[in-house]
Design a protein around this nucleic acid. Structure first.
Lengths: 214, 214
DNA sequence: CCGCATCCCATGTGATACTG
DNA sequence: CAGTATCACATGGGATGCGG
């Protein structure tokens, strides 16, 4: 156990001892969206072996990052306040990794929680605060999200029946819209994004609200 | 090789594929301070096996994060512009891990580069910009640094012979000064920090300039 | 079912030694 | 100094089992 330590008295080192193991920060990423059950985490991390998920959850609890909450007939895991402080780390990683994303490969999936965190990463509060409140229904592969922007505040939730200003469907190549490589108009023309409901011009507002440098 | 991938189309996931391996971000941490030779990296990471250092450097090059520069009679590694973008990640990790640092253990060392990045993490530009330019000589264990603050700008370098406003020596418990658990006055009284030269009151300014929440 | 625990094998890691 | 080579061992991955 001590062999996994780096032997340095340094905050960065300590952080990596706590969350540097494989899969750990991806579990945190999903828990940043909300409390999750064991099986929900498995679904959000399709390739994680179940023994690894179990041990990571145990380690994250010992580190004070995750709390295990037994409820009637189900158990949920949620971040502690300290665990929620990892949001900065996850966002910074997301910004960095986005630039190296490239084109989606066949075996790569998009999950609801990863897309939610991508929206949070790409969100431009300063731009949004100058725009009227807008709600979107985003259908990206298997993920169906309700994205609502009001002032500089962003809320992303599972899609429900509530009405939205713009409903659209897209593949992983929505990345090019967020990076600005493709304009909203081009994305619609290429059918990279398909407008299902609402005025297509709103897609341009969406692209301004969510942007990450490539 | 593909087995190390997470199978998700997501920036956070991609970032972890690039720099999530053990030791990788610690190598980046040291290279954020400046270009380093192979042997210098070994010294800054006392417990890294040499084969691991070699393969990490190779992987970081393939990822476009590190550049290998052969010079006359020596080879240096430096971050690419893309690699330098990891500073946000490293700083965020440092902030997070600092809170879990606890007291230094016997086998834990403080290196010059890790301390340099700790200063960068703890630096409060807004506070500093309201204070007169100040230079410090900080001797923490084997690390001897020249820290100079001017306006909202911080520069940390290896200690040289140039005069400084305050010269002090401390152990790893300098952490308590940075976290605010100990005031500058207490730190001097406890001999946690020993003033070698200059007006002791400047240590209070130092503590205001460098602060991280505990 | 859901929430894990166990088993087994492939791979990655760590310590040491060695080489151009 | 800047790495390779080697080998023991720990960890991760995948399948499977099992109790509540």
């Amino acid at each position: 156990m001590a062999s996994r330590e780096y032997g340095q008295y340094c905050g960065i080192t300590r952080a990596l001892e706590l969350v540097g193991e494989r899969w750990a920060l991806l579990i945190v990423r999903d828990l940043l969206v909300g409390p999750r059950r064991y099986g929900e985490l498995q679904h959000g991390l399709p390739r994680i072996p179940s023994n690894i998920l179990a041990s990571r959850l145990k380690e994250l609890q010992e580190a004070g990052i995750v709390r295990r909450i037994p409820r009637v007939r189900q158990i949920v895991y949620e971040l502690t306040p300290y665990g929620r402080e990892l949001e900065d780390v996850v966002i910074a990683l997301g910004r960095f990794g986005f630039k190296a994303l490239g084109d989606p490969r066949e075996e790569q999936v998009v999950t609801a929680d990863s897309l939610t965190m991508t929206f949070r990463t790409a969100f431009q509060p300063d731009v949004a605060s100058g725009l009227p409140p807008t709600s979107y229904a985003a259908l990206v592969g298997p993920a169906a999200l309700h994205v609502s922007v009001a002032g500089s505040r962003l809320q992303v939730a599972r899609l429900d029946e509530a009405p939205v200003d713009l409903r659209f469907e897209a593949g992983p190549d929505i990345r090019r819209l967020i990076s600005g490589e493709t304009s909203a108009e081009e994305a619609i023309a290429d059918a990279a994004v398909r407008i299902l409901d609402g005025p297509p011009e709103l897609l341009h507002r969406f692209a301004r609200t969510f942007h990450l440098a490539a």
